[in-house]
Design a protein around this nucleic acid. Structure first.
Lengths: 154, 154
DNA sequence: AGCAGAAGCTTTAGACTTAAAGCATCTCGA
DNA sequence: TCGAGATGCTTTAAGTCTAAAGCTTCTGCT
């Protein structure tokens, strides 16, 4: 019976899985964006840039930021423009390649990030609190496999 | 030993899980957007609107679209403006409530959607092909639990 | 009846995003 | 050496998105 049903009406389990994945991401993103705005007057893209810069000891080039945040290079230009204007990051040049623009956190940027990040972590932890450690591990592993799958391994 | 490490350096497993979720979603979204553009000269938000309208037998109001796509009402206004201009959807009024704007697929819109959706489904299926049925089911269930968790059940 | 507030949509200002074109610089092979 | 192509970033045009304010219409209460 199953096969007959599957033949006449295509099973859309994959689509439902994708939509559910998208829903979860959107829900979290929306919540984080709203809180980020309310509590820190900060946007999510800007925060993400600060987080990447904080994680990299010596700053990053525009291209590295573009890769890590998975957004276009033109987008990074605009984000860094605004962050630099607020004094949270600073552009610099690299002597060995004058095409490259090097970006680093300013003291003010580092301070701002250090103030926001524990709260941000708390929001995430809260939203994931409904899953126990086992579920979180299982989900993490499955998403790892999904990541491989997306890039086209088969 | 574990506890000592955990005490001095906060465990960021939740953060890593969230980032991995975001990565998977971004990878799929980026791929689908690019193909949608190349093969159908269509954007993802517009396609999502068409998909919602196709699924609803009698069309939807602007507000219902806003809810289902989880985007702001103002955003829907702009999307429908553009889709209407292309002749893929039509605005209508509802006699019982003159505030409400009713939107439905035109024949042209229905045709366009029917042409795109099998291909779209194929892209998704391909990207998920690295997971077997068991994994997909497990992932689907875990995401269901995550969805509940995000909304704040605990 | 009629008014206060709610509900549904649009408008506005500003930020984010992309693709594509453009500019400067670098690399590498002839 | 020198020029073609690659690389790194910025600019541009257009679409997407949000929050907040504004407009119209409806609902419910007095």
């Amino acid at each position: 019976m199953d096969t007959i049903v599957a033949a006449t009406e295509p099973d859309q389990a994959e689509l439902r899985l994708w939509l559910r994945l998208l829903t979860c991401t959107s829900l979290i993103e929306r919540e984080v964006r709203a809180r980020m705005r309310r509590e820190f007057d900060m946007t999510l893209p800007r925060f993400d840039v600060l987080a990447q810069l904080d994680r990299a000891a010596d700053g990053l080039s525009m291209g590295e930021l573009s890769d890590r945040l998975m957004v276009s290079a033109g987008n990074i230009t605009g984000l860094i423009d605004r962050l630099a204007q607020e004094g949270l990051v600073a552009r610099g040049s690299r002597p060995d390649d004058r095409r490259t623009v090097h970006v680093r956190l300013t003291d003010k940027g580092k301070q701002a990030f250090d103030q926001m990040t524990p709260t941000h972590h708390g929001w995430i932890a809260d939203m994931l609190a409904g899953l126990d450690r086992t579920d979180r591990k299982a989900l993490y592993d499955l998403l790892g496999r999904l990541k491989t799958s997306i890039s086209g391994d088969a």
